[in-house]
């Protein structure tokens, strides 16, 4: 692997929260949304992150773009420490790292036209560009993401969800980023449109040599776009492997359950499958289980699982899982 573009070591994110329904005088508690996450991201590589809601995926993304504070060890961007940077030092990085969000319409300013939205992103980072150049570059980018010239002058509410997401992508890409973090970019879209956007992101990633971090709760979608996948559960990474290998040969019991839960659109397969499926529910992130965070729902749990947080174990080539027992 070439020198990583981004190198994250033992990253954590902690919020101070008051539990829902508690009185205003109750003491705020620490919610550890992300714990001890490490990974490397190479240039032009796509890292997929899957996990259920509240597993910490978005918090990781926000920590990387600096909108929530990370309790560090380290996040190195081409060797420079992201987490130690002040706002001033981060400024040039805001161009290198762009983000695409889940709610396509909500992420766009309703008072600006598509053309203005994309142009504004460009002029924020390149002041003093001549107006006609801004306009032609914005038009070219909108066309690149599959919109028509006449769309330039329309407002967000005049677009479908899929088209809004295309505008969001154009806005992110026009500044020439190295890394684009996509946080659930297709979960609000219909399946037919979802596929369009995933394919578009895949094309752009290849053509522009971008690195992507693609966050989704849908393993099926992630598998299609990612080179490698990290599986999150209650703020921790439980497994990390090449996408094909993770789906073909999952080693962590949670990953196995996730794969078993993914519906296969084929009645013959579905009916033949025994109803395994996980019992129970995600514990509260305010009171995660001791030891292995998955143990309260794990089908192969043992007494020892409550004692110690399992270390990441090498289970194959470039494949690690946080479970000492083989689910085999």
């Amino acid at each position: 692997m070439s020198a990583p573009l981004l190198s994250v070591r033992e990253l954590g994110v902690t919020y101070r929260v008051r539990p829902g329904g508690s009185p205003p005088w109750a003491r705020a508690r620490a919610l550890q949304a992300v714990r001890n996450v490490s990974f490397d991201l190479a240039p032009a590589e796509t890292l997929g992150i899957v996990g259920e809601s509240g597993s910490g995926k978005s918090s990781l993304a926000r920590a990387l773009i600096g909108t929530v504070p990370a309790s560090r060890r380290q996040a190195l961007w081409q060797g420079a420490d992201l987490l130690a940077m002040g706002a001033e030092q981060r400024r040039p990085l805001r161009r290198d790292i762009q983000m695409i969000f889940q709610n396509p319409l909500g992420a766009l300013d309703p008072r600006m036209t598509a053309g203005e939205i994309v142009a504004e992103a460009l002029t924020t980072h390149e002041r003093g560009l001549p107006r006609h150049e801004v306009r032609s570059r914005a038009a070219a980018m909108l066309e690149r993401v599959g919109l028509l010239p006449e769309h330039m002058n329309r407002y967000p509410h005049e677009f479908s969800g899929g088209q809004c997401q295309r505008i969001g992508i154009a806005r992110a890409l026009i500044v020439g980023p190295r890394l684009v973090i996509c946080d659930e970019p297709v979960s609000a879209l219909d399946v037919s449109v979802q596929a369009q956007i995933v394919n578009l992101l895949q094309d752009l990633q290849r053509d522009l040599g971008l690195s992507l971090i693609f966050i989704s709760h849908d393993l099926g979608v992630v598998k299609h776009i990612a080179d490698r996948i990290m599986v999150f559960y209650l703020g921790r990474v439980l497994e990390h492997a090449a996408a094909g290998e993770l789906v073909r040969a999952p080693r962590h019991p949670y990953t196995r359950a996730l794969i078993a839960a993914a519906p296969v659109p084929d009645p013959a397969v579905e009916r033949g499958r025994q109803a395994t499926g996980l019992g129970g529910e995600l514990p509260s992130p305010l009171a995660p289980p001791s030891g292995c965070v998955f143990r309260t729902r794990c089908p192969i749990v043992r007494d020892a699982c409550a004692d110690e947080v399992p270390a990441m174990r090498e289970v194959g080539e470039d494949h690690v899982a946080a479970c000492p027992y083989d689910a085999g």
Binding site: Q194, A195, G220, V221, K223, H224, G244, V247, I259, V264
Partner: peptide
């Protein structure tokens, strides 16, 4: 529908 049980290059 994106499928886990198939290796399609593109959706």
């Amino acid at each position: 529908v994106p499928r886990l049980d198939r290796d399609d290059e593109r959706l």
